[in-house]
Design a protein around this nucleic acid. Structure first.
Length: 828
DNA sequence: AGCACGCCGACT
DNA sequence: GTCGGCGTGCTC
């Protein structure tokens, strides 16, 4: 076999190419190269091929050979699309690794990697780019025909256009039209990324003149006193601060939105929308030409020293310690040495704001890549990385697929974030782990950063596999919130607890509300009550699929399964014994909201959980309301913990920390630590110390203590105390025996459930947290695997081989969604 | 991923 | 007797 790059063919040699098709197919297919394309075919270029009866696909050349396939006649390549390869060798290696590691087909990786505009297929939709003006007289006949047809019918497929033109080779024409920005190659109906915008108010410069202003006042006071108030408030605010927010003005003047709108309509005020950051640490942190604090300088020095020995360094820096500045220093250094940098951020943290900041340092050499960018934009970034215009790329997880050729550094910010993990279509990769493989492949350094590192990274760092640097001092002297741990047991004894709220918490809520500040209450359970029990016979309604108790939702009056979505009417009498004595046990966000409203009838209480944020903009709407201070108390699940910043929130209450701490598995402890640290980090901002109230039945809990002391769990040595409810051993044994996570990765919770079933054969040699899942799929796997065991016996390598086989042979698209996944301890 | 083929239940 | 459910296999 010959590789094209190494061989020179005469014109007569018939060449064949093995191509990657963007489909879930196990192997690459071979096509015949027309003689005239002999000198042009190259690995990484795109070709159009027919696959199956009538379908055309864009495929990528993975291999070139001069040997004809023996068992079949290869079809010809229809077209060659590129002059220069769009995918380089490193990427192909990366794809191969990913397909192998995450147990999927390379075509699926290709699908995830390439922007869809680079892989048009015969069913791909073509539309006109409405935002782009162009001169039709410059179009050639065929182009004109296409544009004309799109005027009549706004959406055509590639095969429609082939019919229209009466020819098969339409891709080059479409490619040209795409490059001229005339058409859009779609699937682009998805939501575009919207930066957060705020409205700023300024006054018409005419009124900078005090005589004019005086006159205005006189008119307004007579005709529209509310508007006069607003102008007065504006004058006052604008003296204190550079820019005046509309929301601030409404609050300060008490004039209401209508009055301000009136003023805008009369052109007395001007309104301007500006993009603002969603990041917690932004404004004060990334000033141009910042100086590193002594602690930061030490950390930076350590990072450099560690990089001499290790390829991966974990930077553990507390919130607001200024990790970003360290990244910038590292990035600058790498860019100066001429190599490329990839800066990975979790989805939520990607804002135009941070890009603007980074542009100050890196100018036009910085690109942004984001799954919610439209395809034209994505292709543009792809091309600019390919031709070397971008030296730094800032992006979400999918940016690991960009065509880097000389990557020197990968920064993975907030390394513990679960949004690095792709769940839904294969490849179900974790961008952090994939970045480490990439780092290895490109011989580049990887800097992982987090305030609450994931266990596996911490483990790898402590075990010496990664370098480890700590930065435990806050930058700019931001104050830590004060934390109170309140014993629920004690308050119950003293009868000072009202419903689920201790006197300490009520006191702090009261103080905050009096001071017109806001409160967030955290309760890690949605619904009204997680269990319904019959008092007479102890019957509990369970999900028919998942065998977990159903949660009562007051808003729907029904019982819900939180794993599979199954619902049923809440029974009025016990289905088992007919008793009417049915009791709700435990409490969720709905109940907290309800009962707090009874205690604070005049306050505006809102709830944020999966149930209230299901509709499209609900999440954002709640955040906006909170920001505009239309909510006094927000009750929420873990959603409230995610990196958003609210100046008005000074009190955080954790209703029951035990619901986070009591679980016997290590993964839950990790989540608990992160959750508590993140939630409590929300309290208090600029100049005002926050307050965190943690309610618990177990004030001596170890994890809790470590959160309060900001002492990261030494997970390596953490052994869970014995409890009779423990079914499975603690985490460290998982590392030893693990049904190697590679296999499990693909199946998510399915594999975890499997682990539970496998325990029946292997006892506690098989470890993994259990998460119930939908019956049909479970049964499929359990059945196939157990049947194999009967035949083959039960040695561990066999289990692994079996798992692999079953997983690969099952069409994973048919699986229902997973809930939780365990990242790999060893991503190599 | 599509698409054809094929084997069992409920229908004009 | 046929329509149509989706399980299985194949596509260079």
């Amino acid at each position: 076999m010959l590789e094209f790059a190494e061989a020179k063919y005469t014109d007569r040699t018939t060449l064949f190419v093995e191509v990657i098709l963007p489909l879930a197919i196990a192997i690459n297919y071979t096509y015949r190269v027309p003689l005239e394309l002999n000198d042009q075919v190259a690995i990484g270029k795109r070709v159009v091929v027919q696959f199956g009866k009538s379908k055309l696909y864009t495929a990528i050349i993975a291999r070139i050979t001069d040997r004809a396939p023996e068992k079949y006649e290869a079809k010809y390549i229809i077209e060659l699309l590129d002059d220069v390869p769009v995918v380089n060798r490193e990427q192909l290696q990366f794809w191969t690794w990913m397909a192998d590691y995450y147990l999927c087909n390379i075509g699926e990786v290709m699908n995830a990697a390439l922007p869809s505009a680079l892989k048009l297929a015969s069913e791909t939709k073509i539309t006109l780019n409405k935002e782009f003006e162009f001169d039709r007289s410059e179009l050639n006949d065929r182009e004109y025909l296409i544009v004309d047809a799109l005027d009549l019918q706004p959406e055509l497929t590639v095969s429609d256009i082939a019919k229209l033109l009466g020819q098969k080779t339409v891709m080059p024409i479409l490619k040209q039209l795409f490059e001229k920005n005339i058409i859009i190659i779609s699937e682009e109906v998805s939501d575009r990324y919207k930066p957060r915008r705020k409205t700023y108010i300024s006054i018409n410069p005419v009124y900078h003149n005090s005589a004019q202003l005086q006159e205005l006042f006189e008119i307004l006071e007579r005709r529209a006193p509310k508007q006069a108030d607003a102008v007065l408030a504006y004058m006052k605010l604008s003296r204190q601060q550079k820019a005046v927010l509309k929301s601030e003005l409404i609050e300060a003047s008490g004039a209401g939105a209508a009055a301000i709108k009136g003023l805008i309509d009369k052109e007395i005020f001007f309104a301007e929308e500006r993009t603002v950051s969603r990041l917690r640490e932004g404004d004060e942190e990334l000033e141009a030409n910042f100086e590193l604090s002594p602690a930061q300088q030490v950390a930076l020095g350590e990072i450099k020293t560690q990089f001499e020995q290790k390829d991966v360094v974990l930077l553990h820096g507390v919130t607001s310690s200024g990790k970003t500045q360290l990244y910038i220093k590292q990035i600058e250094e790498m860019v100066n040495s001429g190599r490329q940098v990839l800066y990975l951020l979790p989805e939520i943290a990607l804002t135009t704001h941070i890009v603007e900041r980074l542009r100050k340092y890196f100018g036009a050499a910085i690109g942004v890549y984001h799954s919610r960018f439209n395809d034209n934009e994505r292709v543009e970034v792809w091309q600019k990385v390919l031709n070397g215009q971008y030296r730094v790329v800032l992006g979400a997880r999918s940016s690991i697929f960009l065509p880097f050729d000389d990557l020197g550094l990968i920064v993975v910010d907030e390394e513990h974030e679960t949004s690095y993990k792709q769940f839904d279509p294969a490849p179900r990769y974790n961008a952090r782990d994939a970045a480490i493989y990439m780092g290895n492949m490109y011989n580049s350094k990887v800097l992982l950063g987090s305030a609450t590192p994931s266990f596996e990274s911490y483990y790898n760092a402590k075990g010496g596999k990664y370098g480890f640097v700590e930065l435990m001092e806050r930058y700019g002297g931001v104050q830590l919130p004060a934390t109170d741990v309140v014993s629920i047991t004690e308050e119950t004894k003293k009868k000072t607890i009202q419903s689920h709220f201790t006197s300490v918490l009520m006191q702090d809520i009261g103080n905050a509300l009096t001071a017109k500040e806001q409160v967030i209450l955290f309760q890690n359970r949605r619904g009204y009550a997680p269990v319904m029990v019959c008092r007479t016979c102890a019957y509990t309604p369970k999900c028919v699929n998942c065998d977990v108790s159903l949660t009562y939702h007051k808003s729907s009056g029904r019982l819900h399964c939180h794993y599979c979505g199954y619902r049923e009417e809440s029974p009025a009498v016990c289905p088992a014994c007919g008793s009417t004595q049915l009791e709700y046990k435990g409490f969720g966000t709905e109940k907290i909201e309800d009962e707090l409203q009874l205690l604070l009838p005049d306050s505006k209480i809102a709830r944020m959980d999966l149930d209230t944020t299901r509709s499209k903009n609900a999440f954002q709407n709640i955040l906006n309301e909170l920001e505009e201070k239309r909510i006094d108390v927000l009750v929420g699940t873990q959603m409230v913990a995610k990196g958003l910043d609210f100046d008005g929130v000074t009190v955080i209450g954790i209703i029951n920390a035990d619901s986070l701490l009591k679980y016997p598995d290590f993964r839950a402890n990790e989540r608990a630590f992160q959750m508590l640290a993140q939630v409590s980090g929300r309290a208090g901002r600029r100049g005002k110390q926050g307050k965190v109230v943690i309610q618990t039945y177990d004030p001596g809990n170890r994890v809790l203590k470590q959160v309060i002391e900001n002492d990261y769990i030494d997970l390596y040595n953490t052994e869970m105390p014995e409890r009779k409810s423990y079914k499975y051993p603690p985490f460290y044994r998982l590392i030893n025996i693990n049904i190697k996570h590679k296999e499990a990765e693909v199946l998510h919770n399915q594999a975890e459930y499997l682990a539970k079933e496998l325990r029946q054969h292997f006892g506690d040699r098989v470890i993994g947290p259990e998460y119930p899942m939908v019956g049909r799929i479970r049964n499929y796997f359990i059945k196939s695997i157990l049947l194999k065991f009967e035949k083959d016996g039960v040695s561990l390598p066999k289990v692994r081989a079996t798992l692999r086989e079953v997983i690969l042979n099952y069409n994973t698209t048919k699986l229902s969604k997973g809930s939780i996944v365990q990242p790999d301890v060893d991503p190599y």
